[in-house]
Design a protein around this nucleic acid. Sequence first.
DNA 1: CGGGCCTTTGAACACCTTCAATCTTCGTGG
DNA 2: CCACGAAGATTGAAGGTGTTCAAAGGCCCG
Lengths: 241, 241
Amino acid sequence: MDTLSSRIQNGDVPAVCRSCEARHGGVCSALTPAQLVELSKHSSRRTIDAGTEFIGQGESISSYSNILKGVVKLSKVMADGRQQIVGLQFAPDFMGRPFLGESRMAAEAAIDTEICVFPRRAIERLIAETPGLEHLLHSQALKELDEARDWMLTLGRKTAQEKVASFLALIASHSDPEAEEKSMFELPLSRADIADFLGLTIETVSRQMTKLRKEGIIQIENNRHVTVPDLGRLVAAAGND
Amino acid sequence: MDTLSSRIQNGDVPAVCRSCEARHGGVCSALTPAQLVELSKHSSRRTIDAGTEFIGQGESISSYSNILKGVVKLSKVMADGRQQIVGLQFAPDFMGRPFLGESRMAAEAAIDTEICVFPRRAIERLIAETPGLEHLLHSQALKELDEARDWMLTLGRKTAQEKVASFLALIASHSDPEAEEKSMFELPLSRADIADFLGLTIETVSRQMTKLRKEGIIQIENNRHVTVPDLGRLVAAAGND
DNA sequence: CGGGCCTTTGAACACCTTCAATCTTCGTGG
DNA sequence: CCACGAAGATTGAAGGTGTTCAAAGGCCCG
C-alpha cells in the first residue's frame, strides 16, 4: 500500500529479519527497528533435525528462542522414565521460561525445525526496557496457560477415544487455521509421542486411530497423513460438545 | 526500623489496605500509594462461603480479585457433567484472566474465603500504565503455567497412589511453607473435589488414602485433618524422586 | 438422639495396559 | 530397481488398575 514508507521502514530492519515470519507474530513484532538491529547482532538461526533434544530437563538456560518453522515438544520425565509431553509449540512461538535460570522440562524438535536463538541477557534487558515486549510475552504465557488447563481436562477426564480425537483436532486447528469442514495435515508426532502427550500407550493410540478410521471420522495414509472429511464429527468425538 | 518514614508511608495508604496481607505479596505491592488510594475507592471486600461458585464457566468477566484468605478451586466441566479441577489458588494470588472478556472455567470457594474485588476497567488501566504490575502478573502467570504442567505429568502418568500422594504433598507445601520433616494441615477439599483434581473417582481416592494411612505415611482424623510424620516418604510416594 | 451427608469398604466389571507376534513403511545398499 | 533390515505401527490375547454399583459406617448438626 504505502510502498515508500514501508521501504524506508524495511531499510532500518536487519537483513536477516526482513524475511522472517516471527517479525510479525512473534516477539520481534514488539521491538523497534533499532532494537531489532541490536538484537540481531547477537542472535543466530539454527536448524534442528527431527528428534533432536536441544534443551534438557533441569539444564541451566543461557538463551531464549523463537520458532521460525516446525514443531517443538516440551516434555517432563520421571525418574523411572515415564514421560509426559506438556506442550507443543508452533511458529512463531517464543520459547524459554523468563525469570528462571533453569528449564523445568526438555525441548525437542518433533519435526525438522528452525529457530532463532537470542542470548538470555539481551532478552532480559529488552524486557525490562520495553513494556510492549513484556505484554506480548505475558499474553503468550496466558495463552499457554489456557491450553495447559484445557489439556488437563483431556488428561484427567476423557476416554482414550476422546483423547485421540482431541489430539487430532488440536493438530487440525494448527494446520488449517480457518477450515470449517474438511482438513488435511501431516501429524508432527509419532504414535509414541502422541501416547506421551495423551497419557496413554502406543497400542491404545493405535487402536483408537483405527477405530476413528473405521467410523469414517478420519482417513489415514502412510501413518502420518490424515484427512478429516468433517471437522464437526471429529470435535464431537473429542467430547467438545 | 525507620518508624517516621513508615508512618508517613502508611499515612498515604488507604485504611482498608493497611492491614491487608495482599499488599505485600499480591498485586497491590506493585502499586504506588496514590494508585492504591484510587483503586481502593472502587474495590470492595467480599466473603464467600465454602462451596459457593462466584464465577461461572463461560461467564463474562467484569472484575478481577485478590484472595485474602482461603482457597479457591478453578474447574472445567464437560457437557455431560464430567469435571476437572485445573488449579487451586491460595492467598495472596490474583484471580482473573487479563485481556479476555470471559472466563474459561468456574471459580468456587473450597473453604470459607475472603477476596478483594476490583473493577475490570480499573485493573486494565493500571496494567497499561504500570509496567511493574504487568511484570508481577506475568510472573504469576508463569508460576501457574509451571504448576499446570507439573500437574499434567501427575494426571497423565502417575498411578492412583502417586496422584493422591502428590495432592497431599501439594497441600502440605502450602500449609507449612518450610517444614522439613513433619507436617499437619486441614484438607481444603472434600474427597469428591480431590477426585476431580486428580482425575479419579471418590472411591479410588478413599482407597488410596486408606492405603497411605496403613503404610504409615499419613495419619487421618475426622476425614479432613492430616498429619504427615515424614514428608520425605510422602514425596517419595508421590513419585517425585 | 435422629437424619443427612460424606466417607469407607466390598464385589463385579470395564477400559486400558502389557506382552507378544505380525505387518507396514522407509532408508540403505547391493 | 529391488532386496534387505530396522524402526514404527497394527493387531491379538491375557491381565491389572481403576471404575461402577451397592451397602455399611462415621461425622456433624439440628
